[in-house]
């Protein structure tokens, strides 16, 4: 069974996921950040693979990726870092990267390394459904890896139903027509969209992301979904205050 699915069996409400960028703020911080997040009771962690041209990311994550690349991070180092957590880390990890990284590294080699690190869930924002069906579904199945699809306020009901049928971990509900980045609040239009998705009674679990930044937006999102992901707001905090202050960021959200 998929690691996130297993998690949902134990807990399916108010799940908090945190996104962070590997190798940020320092090259060797990847595993430290994961350990501190785990200690703070974060339910699952989105591990961002820094990319030179992250099309779906806003300025905060772009800058963290840039910094991580300047720190010398690359996929070999990421996998070396993550494999050290295998066995000790109990919090499921989800890898988020762009398709060109997987393509250039070698599709099979990439998948094998992912599995070696005890990870079984990927988010690849520029992998469209048609390419998934034509090629990647078979590849991922071979390695027992599952891909998380995103839906947006503009995704048609038919498409959402199709995504629902592919989904093994969760559906990533993008909160607005947006790139990543903290917005501060959730609008009525967004609320209507969350309600519409909830009313579809999909079989998949729903996690809301993009624009979730604090206790208030997290709580609102959790009314309409099984949980939410905080990314840019966490990265901003990590950049400004370092690993030592992660507790101060997470505690108020979870309490």
């Amino acid at each position: 069974m998929n690691s996130i699915q297993e998690l949902f069996q134990k807990k399916d409400k108010n799940l908090l996921s945190i996104y962070f960028t590997c190798g940020y703020p320092k090259l060797e911080d990847t595993t430290k950040v994961i350990s501190v997040l785990e200690k703070n009771g974060v339910d699952f962690i989105e591990v961002g693979l820094p990319y030179s041209d992250p099309m779906a990311d806003g300025p905060t994550i772009q800058e963290s990726s840039q910094k991580a690349l300047e720190n010398g991070i690359n996929l070999d180092i990421v996998f070396e870092q993550l494999i050290t957590l295998k066995g000790t880390n109990k919090t499921p990890l989800v890898l988020m990267g762009y398709l060109n990284q997987l393509l250039k590294y070698g599709e099979d080699k990439f998948c094998q390394k992912v599995v070696d690190c005890g990870i079984d869930t990927l988010i690849i924002p520029d992998l469209p459904m048609v390419e998934f069906e034509n090629h990647y579904q078979e590849l991922f199945d071979k390695y027992g890896i599952t891909n998380v699809f995103l839906i947006t306020p503009h995704t048609s009901d038919n498409r959402i139903k199709k995504i629902d049928s592919f989904t093994k971990a969760f559906i990533y509900v993008v909160a607005s027509a947006s790139i990543t980045g903290a917005k501060g609040e959730i609008s009525d239009t967004q609320m209507d969209y969350f309600k519409r998705i909830k009313a579809m009674n999909l079989r998949s679990k729903l996690i809301i992301g993009f624009g979730i930044s604090d206790k208030s937006t997290f709580t609102t999102a959790c009314k309409y979904a099984n949980g939410a992901i905080i990314g840019s707001a966490f990265i901003k905090n990590l950049g400004n205050h370092g690993i030592a202050k992660i507790d101060d960021f997470i505690k108020p959200i979870i309490s």
Partner: peptide
């Protein structure tokens, strides 16, 4: 190869 956001 586009994010879902651009699909429509």
């Amino acid at each position: 190869f586009i994010p879902e956001l651009l699909h429509p």
